[in-house]
């Protein structure tokens, strides 16, 4: 059975590329903002296997989103996509295992693929 993953990024084109890259192996759900993601998580919370979110987004950022839904709404592996910024909160989120891993932009799609396989299959 195909696993379901949620991509969150304010860059629609990034979402498009991620969707095309992973749609053959996964059911891909996309959200364009933290708020949008909250709604989609609510709808798909039973089938969702992983969340991969951009860190910097207008409005709710990736870390806020994950902190909000994990572990109360969903308790699944979460990943962050970040630029080169190294925020204190990321470190603590990593150590608290709120997030599994963070991918640095420009990211390696194969690395994301490998990590996803390792964690959820």
């Amino acid at each position: 059975m195909k696993r379901t993953i949620l991509f969150v990024d304010d860059e629609v084109i990034n979402l498009f590329v991620l969707e095309r890259r992973f749609e053959s192996d996964y059911n891909v759900i996309t959200a364009e903002s933290g708020e949008d993601a909250l709604e989609k998580i609510e709808v798909h919370k039973d089938e969702l296997d992983a969340i991969i979110s951009d860190l910097k987004m207008p409005g709710m950022d990736g870390l806020q989103l994950i902190n909000k839904v994990k572990p109360d709404v969903v308790n699944i592996p979460c990943f962050l996509l970040t630029g080169f910024e190294r925020v204190q909160q990321i470190d603590s989120a990593l150590s608290e295992e709120k997030i599994q891993y963070m991918f640095k932009k420009p990211f390696d799609y194969n690395e994301i693929d490998a990590k996803l396989k390792e964690v959820i299959q």
């Binding site: 860059e11 084109i13 990034n14 590329v17 991620l18 095309r20 890259r21 910097k56 630029g83 080169f84 910024e85 932009k105 420009p106 990211f107 799609y109």
Partner: peptide, 21 residues
């Protein structure tokens, strides 16, 4: 430059992803 580098990351990802797909 910090902000600009971040901003260049996205288009780089488009190109990289586009080529991979």
């Amino acid at each position: 430059s910090a902000g600009v580098a971040h901003e260049i990351n996205n288009p780089l990802n488009f190109i990289k992803g586009g080529i991979e797909v």
